[in-house]
């Protein structure tokens, strides 16, 4: 069952396994912290309207890879990108120096590992992205906030306390608030960095269910350390190891018949 692949094929998908249409695509993406190469020529397609999961043992660079998409690394000195991340439909390389990272972040949204609501009201948390974009009209804000909270399946729980501090909610609620905050600005691509790792199983289940509903509206790229989660929710899976892409393919196929020995070892729990 295990077919060993020629190393030059590592990272490429089999014919017919290339998703279409694409929302974004990493092309030969390398990333450096100072002089340390953290990502080595990683290429992954992000299928529109699908959930793509990034899996791999901790330290494999999956979070680093995710954070390249909204140029989060630009905030810290000594970081450098090589290669490209193309954002469709226009196919622009968003890592290009000419591209303003703020504009990139206005089209992509991110949810972090640890719920990080602002110590402001629930309402202001969700409205902040809109305010940054210059929305001042109270009616528009109200409507968008409600919509986003509904999309994040939080509306019913918080509609009576929109002015309560976001930080006063429970852990699972906080993370859904962060998802609502991310959704309020109608992002094209939602980046999730291990969004359930700080949550209990029930809250995790809620969020997984939510993501299934969301993918019709927004393309999702999710990093998870939990293989079962990837298998449950994603359409496509990329397995990374030591900063390299080992294998990419449809989730079902990758988890049943991995083409790479390392992938197989990882998903069968032999390491990682």
């Amino acid at each position: 069952m295990a077919r060993s692949l020629d190393s030059s094929h590592v990272g490429s998908a089999e014919k017919g396994e290339w998703p279409k249409p694409l929302k974004a695509e990493a092309c030969e993406l390398s990333f450096y912290y100072g002089s340390r190469l953290v990502l080595k020529r990683v290429s992954v397609p992000i299928a529109q309207g699908n959930i793509t999961a990034l899996i791999g043992p901790s330290g494999c660079g999956k979070s680093t890879f995710l954070r390249c998409f909204n140029r989060m690394h630009d905030l810290y000195p000594g970081t450098r990108y090589e290669g490209a991340i193309l954002l469709y439909p226009e196919g622009r390389n968003i890592l290009d120096r000419q591209v303003d990272p703020i504009e990139v972040r206005m089209r992509l949204a991110m949810v972090f590992q640890k719920p990080n609501p602002f110590p402001k009201s629930v309402y202001e948390n969700v409205a902040y992205g809109l305010r940054v974009r210059g929305v001042r009209d109270r009616r528009v804000l109200d409507e968008k906030v409600e919509q986003a909270l509904r999309s994040a399946a939080l509306w019913e729980e918080v509609k009576d306390r929109l002015s309560a501090l976001g930080t006063s909610l429970s852990g699972g609620q906080q993370q859904r608030l962060c998802i609502a905050r991310a959704l309020a600005t109608d992002p094209e691509l939602l980046l999730l960095d291990e969004p359930t790792s700080a949550l209990d199983p029930i809250a995790t289940g809620n969020i997984e269910e939510l993501l299934q509903d969301l993918k019709r509206r927004v393309t999702i790229l999710i990093v998870t350390h939990n293989m079962q989660q990837a298998a449950r929710i994603s359409d496509w899976t990329a397995f990374m190891y030591l900063g390299e892409l080992v294998e990419f393919g449809p989730t079902k196929r990758l988890f049943t018949t991995p083409t790479n020995k390392q992938t197989e070892d990882y998903i069968t729990g032999r390491f990682g």
Binding site: N70, M72, L75, K114, F118, G129, R131, V132, R181, A182
Partner: peptide, 23 residues
């Protein structure tokens, strides 16, 4: 003020000054 608060603001498209002034 923890870094993750700043990152949350930046990820929403806030500029540096907006992050500083609003958060």
């Amino acid at each position: 003020v923890p870094v993750h608060i700043r990152e949350a603001a930046f990820a929403l498209g806030a500029t540096r000054w907006q992050t500083v002034a609003d958060h």
